[in-house]
Design a protein around this nucleic acid. Structure first.
Length: 349
DNA sequence: AACGCGGGGAC
DNA sequence: GTCCCAGCGTT
């Protein structure tokens, strides 16, 4: 049996029942594909369910505020996906008259949709013969065919796309594409592949040569940088005992774009109490600061894939009312990074 | 061609 | 600790 035949056979016996597999509605498939970019099925599934529940149609999503989309996305990471998701929904409504693009080329014009996602949607929804190449496919193909070209090199990306396109089954593309990804996730997994009872173990080059654990080859990742965050949490209690604090929205290019956080002092290294007091007086202008004390004695280290954030939270008690204040009960309405959400949850306002 | 972008789970 | 996940956009 051919490679694709065995993949299809394996898929029919082993496929999981996943919520998006009940439909070929391009809106729902697109939603699932964006959510699952660089994200495990287990992590993305509850988000998918909340999104289809909250936004049943692309029109509903397009008409939402970006704030609401980001709030629903909170905790999933790579927030440009959420911003692009919203922008793409608007494109579908405005430029495609509300009808989801129905072929690979048009799908590629949507923000946040690249070769993988356009291939996935066009094959699953419209039976177009475009082979998907995701992390699973790189692993399966590199092992089965014994290819050691780095998967994240320009040559590798081109090579594996062509190979995937060559070995696919164009007549069963919907199941083939999902099948090879599922096979990579469950059978041909990164660490402990189940080679012993694999339907391809009589013809897998990596298995024959003992290279299973050396493939796929991947170029080195960039190094992690350290940053030092000091969050100032102003707290003002009015005459009724109601408490207020302040959030501000992150703008610019870096992490957590358009998400909200407390006023931030970033420094090259760990700051001392007196430095914080000094800078707090600048940040909060002429406010009457009653007391400043640290919340966490040792730094909270928030680890992103490319940055380690050494974080201190400082409680700033103020005696006077201030602008841009929000009541602490409203904190949960803002989309915030996990680092901030964890603090809000742990701190007793 | 290289880099920036999150968070979490498996080991 | 390391690796990687149904990748994409920017520089």
């Amino acid at each position: 049996m051919s490679f694709s035949g065995k993949i299809l056979d394996w898929y029919h016996k082993n496929k999981r029942t996943l919520p998006w597999r009940k439909s070929t509605d391009p809106y729902k498939i697109w939603l699932s594909e964006i959510i699952l970019q660089q994200t495990r099925v287990a992590q993305g599934t509850p988000y998918y369910l909340r999104f289809v529940e909250t936004f049943p149609t692309v029109d509903d999503l397009a008409n939402a505020e970006e704030e609401q989309v980001l709030k629903l996305w909170q905790g999933l990471g790579y927030y440009s996906r959420a911003r692009n998701l919203h922008a793409a929904a608007k494109m579908v409504v405005d430029e495609y008259n509300g009808k989801f693009p129905d072929n690979y080329k048009k799908l590629l014009t949507l923000k946040g949709v690249g070769d993988y996602t356009a291939s996935a949607i066009s094959s699953i929804c419209f039976n177009e013969p475009h082979a998907v190449v995701d992390g699973n496919v790189y692993r399966v193909l590199s092992r089965y065919y014994g290819i050691d070209i780095p998967i994240n090199s320009t040559e590798g990306i081109k090579y594996f796309k062509a190979l995937a396109q060559k070995v696919m089954d164009p007549d069963h593309i919907r199941d083939y594409n999902q099948g090879i990804m599922e096979f990579g996730a469950i059978q041909c997994s990164p660490k402990k592949p189940l080679c012993l009872h694999c339907p391809l173990n009589d013809s897998c080059v990596a298995l024959e040569k003992g290279l299973v654990h050396q493939l796929p080859v991947k170029l080195k990742k960039t190094k992690v940088s350290n940053r030092y965050f000091n969050y100032l949490i102003p707290i003002y209690k009015d005459t009724n005992g109601k408490k207020y604090t302040r959030l501000q929205q992150r703008k610019g290019k870096g992490i957590w774009q358009n998400l909200w956080e407390f006023p931030l002092i970033e420094s090259k290294s760990s700051l001392e109490n007196k430095d914080i007091v000094l800078k707090s007086n600048v940040i909060f202008g002429d406010l009457d600061i009653n007391d400043i004390h640290i919340y966490n004695d040792t730094d909270i280290v928030h680890k992103l894939s490319h940055q380690h954030l050494y974080t201190k939270f400082w409680i700033v008690d103020v005696n006077t009312d201030f602008d841009h204040k929000i009541s602490v009960e409203k904190l949960s309405e803002f989309p915030v990074p996990v680092l901030i959400a964890d603090f809000i949850k742990a701190f007793k306002f």
